[in-house]
Nucleic acid binder design. Structure first.
Ligand SMILES: [Mn+2]
Ligand SMILES: [Mn+2]
Ligand SMILES: [Zn+2]
Ligand SMILES: [Zn+2]
Lengths: 138, 138
DNA sequence: CCGCTATTTTATAATAATTCTAATTTAGGC
DNA sequence: GCCTAAATTAGAATTATTATAAAATAGCGG
């Protein structure tokens, strides 16, 4: 719990041309150094930061989530039409979505086989295929 | 363009235990009687109603979209984390999503084959599998 | 180190989408 | 037609997010 844990985060930020400020480092630490399958909203990440004693404004959390996403460190996933979720897992993968709790669980891409995809219209290409498996009781 | 076109809409509403009010009929007509692959938001449907001279408040458009969804006449799709989209196609199907324009296009389920889905966790079952194929230029 | 400047952070206001509230209107059984 | 429950509505409230503009700071050159 000394300076070391930040080394990884600092490198990620440097590569993305983002100054390793106190706030970005704290958020990067929370996002990337406790497993790589986190699904956060601005609000949940902000609360988490507060609990850790990191003083970061909600505006900065929003800014940082978008900067990290633009830099390819995060990915935004669409599972709620009212709130933005950000995924720390940027590998090719899909999701279980619990309809009761809203909880998201990763599914590595190799566990799903998609065959016979229709091809993209003329002059376009497929940039990504997102699969959400909604699960409910019983 | 006489009373006939409403017959279908009235039946749908009756089956869903929704009184066929002037407002619901006007919205049902817009939603269901011009092809069955419409993707609307409250705002777009409200504008459309205004243009047709149907006087319906935005609050009623929101209420109606949710009532129709609860009744199984519509389906909500998650493609934007800031806005709710409703789909008039309730058959099993998937979507192309244009990253440039946001336009949605239906893909009948039989054109996509999904194999090797992981099974739902204990005591749960899969209620739906949503596939969004994002397309971009080039 | 020191000071300078561009970048970043932040409080706050503004905006966008949606939901709530409570008063008014209306549908449809009697 | 009358009555009542259901539906509609304007407007206020709420929630998520973005914009603004002033204060703080990272990091470079001296
Ligand atoms: Mn994920
Ligand atoms: Mn559709
Ligand atoms: Zn769950
Ligand atoms: Zn398009």
């Amino acid at each position: 719990m000394n300076e070391r844990p930040y080394a990884q985060a600092i490198n990620r930020l440097r590569e993305a041309d983002l100054r390793p400020t106190r706030q970005r480092l704290a958020l990067a630490k929370l996002l990337f150094e406790q497993g790589c399958d986190r699904h956060v909203t601005a609000e949940t990440l902000h609360e988490e930061a507060q609990k850790c004693g990191a003083r970061v404004s909600l505006a900065t959390v929003y800014n940082t989530l978008h900067q990290f996403t633009d830099a390819g460190l995060l990915r935004e996933i669409m599972v709620d039409s009212g709130k933005a979720y950000f995924d720390t897992n940027i590998a090719d993968h899909h999701h279980f979505l619990c309809e009761r709790s809203g909880q998201l669980t990763d599914i590595p891409a190799h566990l799903v086989t998609v065959a016979d995809l229709p091809s993209a219209p003329d002059g376009r290409r497929i940039s990504r295929v997102d699969i959400v498996i909604r699960i409910c009781d019983q």
